[in-house]
Design a protein around this nucleic acid. Sequence first.
DNA 1: CCCTGATTCGC
DNA 2: GCGAATCAGG
Length: 202
Amino acid sequence: MSWTDERVETLKRMWGEGQSASAIAKELGGVTRNAVIGKVHRLGLSNRNEEAEAAPAKAAPPTASPAPEAAKKPAKKAEPKPAPKAETAEKPKVEEEEPSTQPAFTPVARRPIVPAGQPLPPQPSANEISPEALASVREVEKKARKLSLMDLTERTCKWPIGDPATEKFWFCGLPSQQGKPYCEAHTGVAFQPMSSRRDRRR
DNA sequence: CCCTGATTCGC
DNA sequence: GCGAATCAGG
């Protein structure tokens, strides 16, 4: 595949929309995200945002005539990158402890804890779930990988476990079902057939 | 482990 | 110009 005007156009549009390189590569097909990133750089679109200027750079730097040559480019070129050798010289490296002075008052609101994606778990009242499913989830929660928000991916179960306001909060994290946001067990309690939840005796 | 963009460098 | 390999990071 080559970078035809059309493909480049698509690239520019999607990149401008904030799409990831992999998403763009997937859309275009025939190229990898590396190819997309490489092209983005060659096109000079690296800085996804800003750069309102560029073209009419007529206006010279306000600084009439700074230091003899201290100006230069603030760009820090790629250093030769020393070989991965690395000497064994260990630095004293004093571990500096964070003041960790927690505010005396509780931050109170810890509102948003939403994993990515539309569907939030219905969090049905326990009495609406079938005993089997309930037993199943409890069993699964023991095996939960207890992932943090940042560790969630497209293929990890995003079922929240615990109270978001406390330290005891994490996400299931087990392998999610294809296309579903949750693992098998949690998908089971999240999406119940109407038939199984109607007047569940209690 | 999954993913992100950035950079390098042989082609 | 191209993009795989690699790097740096969440």
